[in-house]
Amino acid sequence: MSFQLHLRMKKAERAIERVLGLVGRRGYEIEKILAQPSEGSSGIDVTLTIQSDRSGEVLVRQIAKLYEVEQVELTDRESDSLSLPNQRKMK
């Protein structure tokens, strides 16, 4: 099963490493990474294409907890997106 995660993140010390580490550690395989500065803000937009038999929704909830992650959306090729904003404030 392949799905995509779309993250909006704050720029912070090794924030992308933190996300990639979490994904791998939780047993998901990353097929493709696209990271670029967010348009109109100082953050970063990251899109991950992931291959796994494990649930994408569980991974979304784990990623949403990361300090720098402001928003994460899950999409697959057919269904609508699931979006979980990270409600914590941060600098």
Binding site: E13, R14, E17, G21, L22
Partner: peptide, 16 residues
């Protein structure tokens, strides 16, 4: 230590 502890902390900071 920042990198070493990434998988085992709720969060970590390096004050540069």
């Amino acid at each position: 230590i920042f990198g070493i502890t990434l998988p085992i902390v709720k969060h970590n900071f390096l004050v540069k």
